[in-house]
Design a protein around this nucleic acid. Structure first.
Lengths: 254, 254
DNA sequence: AAGTGGTCTAGACCACTTT
DNA sequence: AAGTGGTCTAGACCACTTC
């Protein structure tokens, strides 16, 4: 006997399958909700598969399949013998998922940040559009330089929804050690899940040239990023200018 | 009763688990071998899961898990109700996996190719190293321009192992319609599985400037690609120079 | 020893496609 | 109606970690 409902969110009797949704996807959505609501926080241990199976009244196999997909999307991390943990940006492991610039030779080196600007401004039209805000809404604007071995390599500008990042100041950024996404996740409850990037080659303008200590017109790699949190909500805009004389943007096509 | 061998490729009796390898991974390796050997060719229908389960003397579930991973790696494609097919580059679907340049506005448009050079040469040291050949081995060198709406946008150079691409001539390339990887797969039995790219911004040199019809020094996006076939064997080197005034390299971080 | 994720099986049923 | 992939279950056992 198998009592699995064909379509628990019944569309009425006799509906053959106008909107079929597998059970494990419904479970996956429920788990995602708990992640989003903060029931289990980044880095924490989640309930075991059997516990979740009891809680949702399904078999362990169904919970497994749901968690399988969440692990594939880097929302959770499984550790055999230990349990399943909520993914976090506070790990070496996650750093290079969003920082794809690598030195041409040798291992990646730590970087130092220098913050040039941290201000609250009204969102320009284009920024508002991409962040799905109203034009003129408050956004936090950040401008910083990242250096490797004291050589400035990256010039970044960020725009963040002011609503979500109320207490974000230059001091908080400067004193914080570790990746910026770690700060966002711990202090502002906003976790970056995935991002899209549009990459171009441009010539350095006067401002960029000065900061990166190169001649005006020097070719720079320009990466325009939109980052998303749970539910595909855009929550960060970022423009990175990369000096690629001794570095490159590393990408995998698969 | 469960007759699954703990470690079929026994390392001797009493060996607790010095080299444990799940059954489904062994099945996956066997299926990959059949793909590589051409037992089932790109685009063809593979045996059903139950057939494979009988053949390998395992349960359908174990075969499923093996095929799940092959599908995730884009080696096969599942179609409910129809069967599992060997992946092929002869599909709209696969095109944009290896051509990431998109127009800033509007939908992707078809492109025209013009071949500037197709020659057999001796591999330069760097090329030989990356293709794991001996320095001086024969390689096919290709230089081409790709245009969108009659505007040259991409200048590409390719290096292919001469051994694998014996009959590759300019005529074959010119007369062939469709993606180059389709030709490689159909006519030369070499299927590109995945690739790595190192991306930089450079200034156009004289030759590139002329072909792309821009001023010398114009910023170009430079993508150095190494492509791999089954067994992670490198089988293509490619340098693409992209004009990114009206286009961008589209990337997903996930 | 106990608990966790990971593997494997056998069987039932569902959704989709083709005959 | 038959065949295929897709879902779900229940149960056994394995590998790994911790107590």
């Amino acid at each position: 006997m198998n009592s699995v409902p064909t379509n628990p969110s019944g569309e009425g009797p006799g509906s053959a399958s106008p909107s079929f949704r597998p059970l494990y996807q419904q479970i996956k959505a429920l788990i995602t909700q708990s992640l989003q609501s903060g029931e289990w926080k980044p880095g924490e241990l989640m309930p075991s598969e059997v516990e979740l199976a009891v809680r949702f009244k399904v078999s362990q196999g169904t919970v497994r399949k749901a968690i399988d997909e969440l692990a594939a999307e880097n929302l959770v991390v499984r550790r055999q013998g230990k349990g399943t943990f909520v993914a976090t940006h506070h790990e070496e492991r996650a750093h290079f998922r969003f920082l794809k610039l690598m030195p041409d030779e040798g291992a990646p080196r730590p970087h130092e940040n220098r913050y040039l600007e941290v201000r609250r401004i009204r969102a320009p039209a284009e920024v508002a559009r991409l962040l799905e805000l109203k034009s003129g809404d408050a956004v936090v604007y950040i401008k910083r330089v990242m250096s490797f071995d004291a050589v400035p390599i990256i010039l970044e500008e960020l725009w963040l929804p002011g609503q979500l990042f109320k207490g974000l100041t230059a001091e908080r950024l400067v004193e914080y050690k570790g990746p910026m996404y770690g700060l966002f996740e711990s202090e502002f409850g906003t976790r970056m899940i995935r991002a899209t990037e549009k990459i171009r080659a441009i010539g350095a303008d006067g401002a960029a040239a000065e900061v990166l200590n190169v001649a005006e017109g020097t070719p720079l790699l320009c990466a325009d990023r939109v980052s998303f949190t749970y539910g595909d909500r855009p929550v960060e805009l970022r423009r990175g200018l990369y000096l690629t004389a001794q570095h490159h943007y590393q990408n995998e096509l698969s």
